[in-house]
Amino acid sequence: MTLQEWLRVAHADAQRRGLPDLKPLLEALAQATAALREAEFEREDDDAGGVTTSGDPHD
């Protein structure tokens, strides 16, 4: 299910339940979900690198 489809269904369900004030919360949740789906944890070594260390706080 794409995020757009999910959000449309969620909005409609919230409306049906009489909870229109869920709409902005669901939109914020959709942003978090999008960030999670874009992350590729299985390729973390290639994409993100490891922990970076520096002795200088301004690095």
Binding site: G49, V51, G55, D59
Partner: peptide, 11 residues
């Protein structure tokens, strides 16, 4: 003291 950054922290 050292200063470090963690990958994926923004997630």
């Amino acid at each position: 003291l050292t200063h470090i950054q963690l990958p994926h922290a923004h997630l």
